[in-house]
């Protein structure tokens, strides 16, 4: 399958800080590829390098076959880039912003209206409003419209859902899926682990290194430990007591329950039940559970 973005041994330092440590990956054409990791993992640095706004210290990167250093002008014509920070013109109206971006790329809103229609039509009723006066969700839709208006082949979205509420986040991902259906390669970053499942493939990134690249399903399948969800009437005390349980590999709060992991054979469900009854816990439940991306991420972090 054809490659859209290819990165080999890319490194970038800021003084003593290693923002990217020899990372390599490649994204296929038409793929929805996610970089999942917290702030400071190196996501923005990577996106800036790929968008030809920043030079790497070493390594190579190509976008649609073009080199990010040599062919930066060509790359800029065929990508759409939505930076993490809102970077449209606050004192231009919604419509003026979109017209501006269309004009820069030598096109018009009318010509590519089809591509942005679904997103833009939601903010079109406010097209005379200044961009600076929009709500968070509307700003995000306008920024995406502006990144799309020249019909890019590759879309880079740096944390498009940060600070956005759960409802708008879900709607945003539904929009991405429909864009993908039009054949656009999409590279998106997010600190929200639950969004990983919506990508074709994900790279889990932390401290400038990629810990794992795979499909979300395979990431979950490769979780190496036994994982149980544990409930008790007193969750706060439960977490403390489980952390003292010999043989436990990790204990983390997950909503109203605790997730307890251990190496196969080190502990058993009966053993855990017995320990919790001895420590005076009530309404105890211990059930095996399928790990989610967050479990996997934390397991990889602890290894590293």
């Amino acid at each position: 399958m054809a490659v859209s973005v290819d990165v080999q041994n890319l490194s970038k330092n800021y003084g003593d800080v290693e923002a990217l440590k020899e990372i390599s990956f490649s994204v296929k054409k038409g793929e929805l590829f996610g970089f999942i990791g917290p702030d400071g993992a190196g996501k923005t640095t990577l996106f800036r390098i790929l968008a030809t706004l920043l030079l790497a210290d070493s390594g190579t990167a190509t976008v649609e076959g073009f080199d990010v250093v040599k062919d930066y002008r060509k790359i800029r014509k065929i990508i759409g880039y939505m930076p993490g920070r809102f970077s449209l013109y606050q004192d231009l109206s919604v419509e003026e912003n979109l017209t501006f971006f269309a004009t820069i790329f030598g096109t018009t809103i009318e010509e590519n209206y089809n591509l942005v229609k679904e997103i833009y039509s939601q903010i079109e009723p406010f097209k005379t409003r200044k961009a600076g006066k929009l709500s968070g969700g509307m700003k995000q839709k306008l920024a995406l419209s502006c990144a799309l208006i020249h019909k890019p082949e590759v879309l880079f979205l740096d944390e498009p859902t940060t600070g956005v509420d759960a409802v708008s986040r879900q709607e945003f991902w539904e929009m991405l899926k429909r864009l993908k259906a039009q054949g656009i390669s999409i590279i998106v970053s997010t600190p929200y682990m639950d969004e990983a499942g919506l990508c074709d493939r994900v790279a889990l990134i932390q401290d400038g290194s990629i810990m794992q690249i795979s499909t979300p399903e395979k990431v979950v399948e490769s979780y190496p430990l036994e994982l149980y969800t544990v409930d008790s009437a007193d969750i706060y005390r439960l977490l403390h007591d489980l952390k003292k349980l010999p043989g436990a590999a990790s204990v983390f709060a997950f909503g109203q329950s605790a997730h307890l992991s251990f190496q196969k054979g080190k502990l058993s469900r009966e053993g855990v039940l017995d320990y919790l009854s001895k420590t005076g816990h009530k309404e105890v439940q211990v059930k095996p559970v399928k790990p989610n991306i967050e479990d996997c991420f934390m397991e990889l972090m602890q290894k590293g």
Partner: peptide, 12 residues
């Protein structure tokens, strides 16, 4: 929003 953007272990 005290925990925006931090890693899952730090968040806990």
């Amino acid at each position: 929003e005290p925990t925006g953007g931090v890693d899952p272990i730090t968040r806990r």
